[in-house]
Computed example of a mutant assay.
Amino acid sequence: MGGRGGRDRGLHRRRASRAGTVTLLALVVAVGLAAGGAYAARRGLPPTAPAAGARPTTAHPTPVPPRPVPAAGRVTPGISYPARGTGTFRTATALGAVAGNAGPLLRYRVAVEQGIGNVDVERFAREVAVILADPRGWTGGGRWRLQRVGRDDPADFTVLLTTPVTRGRLCADPTDHYTSCRNGDQVVVNVARWVHGVPHFPDLGAYRQYLLNHEVGHRLGQGHQLCPRAGGPAPVMLQQTLGLHGCTANPWPQVDGDLLTGPTGQYDDPVPADD
């Protein structure tokens, strides 16, 4: 907010006698210097330079409190987006290596909705590929292999980075602009969550790993799960976007070399309003 300027209210006064004026002026200057020094000390500003022969004084400025640190997972990386994008997509073109050593091979494309700013589709596709190829992920247990393919190659599913309103349309749930989803062969990543994460996740990078592994897990046939043990890591198929229910945040399907699972089911967590 801009500051508000004030007009000098002492401009239109009657003339006084010359002597009275000089005396009054000296008094005003003395009072003004004292008040100015007190104000400077209160505000932490350097005091007015002392007159010749006067003893210098030392100002004791009031400490300025540090700026608050943003909550974990709430720092944006410069991505901009409207609530509603164009509904058209830019698709990455590069062909990636096969991740995993055993199991059925599923191929996937990666695309970004037009209208999302500061996202290079090829770079985003590489981020997706790195997460899905991690040995702690779905390809680490020998049950599946995954490969990123280009725009014109056959694919088993597509990872889409979308605006919140487009997410609602593609997920057949127009009232939810907060979460992500998997609908058929579309893994829909809501850019609002990709940018902001959620308050209870330790950091944004880990949340992005969770988000992608969770939604791709649905494409691999996995359903929602509950927290198996309070204080232990959450299964990746727990809806960690909405709550942890006694578990600790965990972005990976594999924990200590084994697939971590919990009881089948989901909690009745409310979906937060739009960001």
Rank of each mutant, 00 (worst) to 15 (best):
L146G: 01
G184H: 03
D156Q: 12
R208N: 07
G197Y: 01
H177C: 10
C181Y: 03
D152S: 13
V188H: 04
V216C: 00
D185I: 07
A206W: 01
W194V: 09
H196Y: 13
N190A: 01
Q209L: 00
D153L: 06
R208M: 03
S180P: 09
Y207N: 12
P199D: 08
G221M: 00
Y210R: 05
L160T: 11
D152E: 11
C181P: 01
R145L: 10
P199N: 06
R193S: 12
T166S: 12
G217H: 00
T179E: 09
D152F: 13
Q209I: 04
W144A: 15
D156N: 14
L160W: 02
V191D: 04
V165H: 03
T175K: 15
A192Y: 04
Y178S: 05
G217E: 00
L160I: 06
L160G: 09
C171G: 08
D153M: 06
V159W: 03
T166V: 04
V198I: 14
D203W: 11
V198G: 01
R169P: 03
G142V: 11
F201A: 15
G140P: 04
G205S: 15
G217L: 00
H196Q: 12
R167L: 11
D203Y: 06
V165D: 09
H214K: 07
N183M: 13
G184V: 10
T179Q: 05
N213W: 05
V149Y: 04
T166L: 05
E215P: 11
L211E: 14
V165S: 11
Q209D: 13
G142T: 08
W144Y: 15
D203Q: 10
Y207R: 03
H177E: 14
D153N: 15
V191G: 02
C181A: 02
D203F: 06
V188N: 09
L220I: 05
G184N: 08
H214S: 08
L146C: 02
D173A: 15
T139Y: 08
Q147V: 10
R219V: 10
D173H: 12
W144Q: 13
H214M: 07
D152G: 09
Q186F: 02
G140Y: 07
L146T: 09
D176L: 04
V188D: 07
T162N: 00
W194E: 05
A155L: 06
V198F: 00
L211H: 07
V195M: 00
L160R: 14
T139A: 14
G140W: 01
H196D: 14
L161S: 00
D152H: 12
Y178W: 11
P199G: 03
H214P: 10
L211N: 12
A155G: 07
R193L: 15
T139R: 10
Q209R: 15
G141S: 14
G141R: 08
G168I: 01
H196K: 09
D185C: 04
H218F: 07
D156S: 13
P202E: 05
P174C: 10
R143H: 11
F201V: 14
S180N: 02
R169M: 09
Q209K: 13
G197S: 01
G168A: 04
G142I: 07
C171R: 02
C171H: 01
D153T: 10
V189D: 02
V159M: 09
R182T: 15
